[in-house]
């Protein structure tokens, strides 16, 4: 085995993962909180705070934080720029929803939040140097976990606010089933270095049991708060592992090995992958 196998990317750490964690959970809460009819002001503040925490995490990671305004310069192709622009729109509309406690403005905010989490998914798929991120099912996975996390948070908030939402427990179970299906499809189709697929396999059993089956059972049993919290925690762990553990680089591939001296060319080599070039 070569020493030049794919390795875990070192450019984005827990702070980048925090952006996807806060952004997905906050966006999910804005969408599901609006759908569940939770108090508009509370949902707008809580969702906006989660997204803001995520953005603060990534602000701490960039090398030149006082130039952060430059992030808005490339909307033509960069999903990071688009994420920033959508975030500004989200805070403008969400601020109105919070100040006026307006369900109508919260609906608009939920729409923008869906766009925000879409941008986050596309940020990952646009990272062509990381096979586990550029996979086609990464975007559906990010969307599905955001929805499940949003349902979980909405379920947690419904009780204290005295909002009766009869369908929310079943909705959470349904969204957990959706996230489970997308996760299984993602893992089954994942073409990535061996260490990335191994990280996915290590996560699989605890994620399915503690992050999907258990909260679904708890929700069905009427234990809303633990069910919601587990659904949220599982999504956060999933994104943390995706960014920091499964983020292995592409590595190097030779479709053929060169003819040297009097020798002949040989078969190709792709160090660190289970499949050849």
């Amino acid at each position: 085995m070569s020493t030049h196998s794919p390795h875990r990317q070192a450019s984005w750490d827990w702070r980048a993962a925090g952006n996807f964690i806060g952004g997905g959970a906050g966006s999910g809460l804005l969408v599901l909180g609006f759908a569940a009819g939770l108090p508009a002001g509370l949902v707008a503040v809580a969702g906006g705070a989660l997204i803001g925490l995520g953005l603060a995490c990534v602000w701490l990671e960039i090398g030149k934080p006082w130039r952060a305004i430059n992030v808005f310069f490339h909307p033509q192709t960069s999903w990071m720029t688009r994420e920033g622009i959508v975030a500004m729109a989200l805070y403008a509309v969400g601020g109105g929803a919070a100040l006026l406690n307006s369900p109508g403005l919260l609906g608009l905010t939920a729409l923008v939040a869906a766009g925000f989490v879409w941008c986050q998914g596309r940020i990952l798929t646009q990272a062509r140097g990381i096979p586990a991120w550029r996979a086609k099912l990464t975007l559906p996975l990010i969307l599905a976990t955001a929805a499940a996390e949003g349902a979980g948070l909405a379920l947690v908030l419904a009780g204290p606010t005295g909002t009766e939402v009869p369908w929310l427990g079943q909705g959470l179970a349904l969204l957990l089933a959706l996230r489970y299906l997308v996760w299984r499809a993602y893992v089954a189709r994942l073409k990535a270095p061996a260490d990335a697929t191994a990280a996915a396999r290590r996560l699989d059993t605890p994620l399915v049991l503690a992050g999907h089956l258990l909260p679904a059972v708890l929700a069905a049993s009427g234990l809303a708060v633990p069910a919601g919290l587990l659904a949220v925690a599982a999504g956060w762990v999933l994104k943390y592992v995706l960014v920091t553990r499964m983020g292995l680089t592409q590595g190097f591939t030779l479709p053929v090995t060169p003819a040297r001296g009097r020798g002949t060319a040989g078969p190709g080599v792709r160090p660190g992958w289970e499949t050849g070039p």
Partner: peptide
């Protein structure tokens, strides 16, 4: 002078 050091380019580059 423009780069913000977000390292998005680093994870987008398949050549490390």
């Amino acid at each position: 002078d423009l780069c913000i050091g977000c390292a998005y380019c680093a994870v987008a580059c398949p050549y490390e």
